[in-house]
Design a protein around this nucleic acid. Structure first.
Lengths: 229, 229
DNA sequence: CCAAAAGTGTTTCACTTACACCCATGA
DNA sequence: TCATGGGTGTAAGTGAAACACTTTTGG
């Protein structure tokens, strides 16, 4: 090692809060620990950062190991550096949160039959370390950011109905939204592409499918447009 | 050391973007480096995190060394972990930003006659490492957050005029605000205490002084009140 | 024909914006 | 008395919120 240090240094990990959405609401992916400390407890997926590995790469590595997907929304959340957050030694963790499409069957396959499971994000089991705090921060961030960034689409398949989209926002914000006002507002932004496709096999009028125009959003955002629900 | 590791670990530092405000606008405090790499370049104050030291404590330590003040607004910004951000070795840095009252004379004293100086936050000199990126992130965060959190007061003395407050917001948001609308809005929140004191020694009508009611803000914020400019 | 969700406009109210003049003070 | 910033109200426009019925489809 080319330098010497006056002080011992903390270890560095990443942890990832992986959110998904299904019919029963917002979910978080947790791993059951096989070792001490906190053996048997549920915890966020995470691990050590390698010396030649960018932080986000480390987070994506953890994410991919647990879900099998690679290109999802991933954002750095906060760095937790309390001295006693790990009973063994000082470990600082850079927390990320990710939004994945639970409709993606690769995710179901990757999490089946493992020590991983989806839990309601708002009422998880007792968590290891300070992971309850990290999860709570992620929820708060998500709730704040979803209102002014088009994150809702990250939880849905590429083609979705307006009702599905509304349910996403209702689940995250945890309050009901008015259907007409929601549609007026979201369609008024001009960011949704109206497809000539419809829901299939439903016992009621089939809803039209839409897709989100990411490119158009990026162009508008550069010119000062603000997505805001 | 009680554990062994499969991989070498990055080193960990904190860096602090210290903002202040004077008549010529928003300023940032920089340190001129005395050693390689980047000898002679200006850089953000920062240093290694000690193994038994919480991150925020480390940031406050750096802040106090440079400004002499202890209780100021300090918030974690982002963690920068690019592999080549330091030419010597892998160093991950947890960046913070702070808001200090430049009217506080301790600050002037602590920064006088040192290798530290205040620069316009929007047009700093060429900076060492990736500190230009960090500063830019801090500015973006400050501009975003100042609109929905009462941060402006952190840059002013405890008693201030409405015009001073307006200038704070104009400097940060970098656009002019309408005087009557600004006053209406900010007074309408009921967070300012109207004092029976006035500016002294000005060559025009003396402006009334106000103070910010932090307690009242906290009580309202709990009940769902949102500060919003 | 029934159940279930899709789809659609208008009114009301609150808030934002634009805007100009007199006042108090010290030089 | 002049220069400088302090202090004040109203009208118009824009956007948010509240609200109910008809349509389509499969069972």
């Amino acid at each position: 090692m080319p330098y010497t240090y006056e002080y011992a240094r903390p270890s560095l990990t990443v942890d990832v809060v992986i959110f998904g959405l299904d019919d029963s609401g917002l979910k978080v992916l947790l791993i059951q620990r096989g070792q001490e400390p906190f053996r048997g407890r549920w915890a966020l997926p995470g691990g050590f950062v390698r010396v030649d590995e960018p932080l986000e790469t480390a987070a994506r590595r953890e994410l991919e190991e647990e879900t099998g997907v690679r290109s999802v929304y991933l954002e750095q959340l906060y760095t937790f550096g309390g001295v006693d957050r790990d009973p063994r030694e000082r470990i600082v963790t850079v927390a990320y949160y990710a939004l994945v499409k639970l409709s993606d069957h690769r995710i179901q396959a990757a999490t089946d039959a493992r020590d991983a499971a989806w839990f309601p994000a708002a009422s998880p089991p007792k968590l290891a370390f300070d992971h309850a705090t990290i999860l709570q921060s992620a929820l708060t961030r998500l709730r704040g950011k979803v209102r002014y960034q088009p994150l809702g689409f990250e939880l849905l398949p590429a083609r979705f109905t307006l009702s599905q989209l509304q349910h996403v926002y209702e689940a995250i914000l945890d309050r009901p939204l008015d259907k007409r006002n929601f549609r007026k507002k979201i369609l008024g932004m001009g960011l949704l592409v109206e497809l000539n496709e419809f829901e299939q096999d439903v016992a009621h009028r089939a809803a039209r499918l839409y897709s989100f125009d990411q490119k158009r959003y990026e162009r508008l955002a550069e010119k000062g447009f603000n997505f805001e629900l």
